[in-house]
Design a protein around this nucleic acid. Structure first.
Length: 195
DNA sequence: TAAGGGATATGCT
DNA sequence: GCATATCCCTTAT
């Protein structure tokens, strides 16, 4: 059901692929929003030039060194929040950035927060999904594997699968480019941010 | 294609 | 201290 700490303690590239198709659930005072993960990106180790950790262990990268199954939320470009899940063992800097979701529950709330009715534009980007799910710095460091957490990841339920089955779709695509080493997305999904 | 915006890190003085 | 470059993006043009 809910993804355990053990799930996040494995090698990051394995977690990356396994996260495609999982459900991210955000519970806030406004209500519940959730979506199926259709795009993600891995950052692992100090040798990964795309990772904050490549510039040393600093205040900004500190969360990456922490224990797995915690949310790492940060601000970029002065206005956008990005949501990562910390992976691997404490002391090794690694995380998976969640880049796009297929909206599942709380669409009306997402539309309100995103100020658009376009379903394809609600969660098709790492900062868009944070806005749609109301993820900001207040959630930095929270556990994503505790039942009481405002932010959790789960296996999809049977009911979800009945509603919209991902299984028939093409498997994940992997993109390697520039210094973004590992990006995985659901090939053919209209909800991804990759062109 | 470019502007928007703030936190962070670095490299000065 | 302060100045500056950078940044895992989005929106509007």
């Amino acid at each position: 059901m809910m993804l355990s700490v053990a799930f996040y303690s494995r090698p990051t590239l394995q977690i990356l692929e396994d996260l495609i198709g999982k459900v991210l659930i955000r519970k806030s005072g406004d209500g519940l929003t959730s979506g199926i993960i259709v795009e993600a990106e891995a950052y692992r180790g100090q040798d990964d030039p795309a990772s904050f950790a490549s510039r040393g262990r600093t205040k900004r990268s500190e969360m990456l060194y922490g224990p797995p199954a915690r949310a790492f939320v940060y601000l970029t470009y002065g206005m956008h929040h990005l949501f990562n899940v910390v992976t691997e063992q404490e002391g090794f800097p690694a995380a998976v950035l969640i880049r796009a979701l297929e909206p599942l529950e709380g669409m009306a709330l997402m539309q309100q927060r995103r100020k658009t009715d376009d379903v394809l534009n609600l969660c098709s980007g790492p900062a868009k999904l944070c806005q749609a799910l109301d993820i900001d710095l207040a959630l930095n460091g929270v556990s994503v594997s505790s039942p009481r957490s405002p932010l959790i990841l789960i296996e999809r339920t049977n009911e979800d699968e009945k509603r919209k089955d991902l299984a028939w779709r093409p498997r994940v695509g992997i993109r390697e480019g520039r210094d973004r080493l590992w990006r995985v997305y659901l090939k053919g999904s209209p909800f991804v941010s990759v062109k």
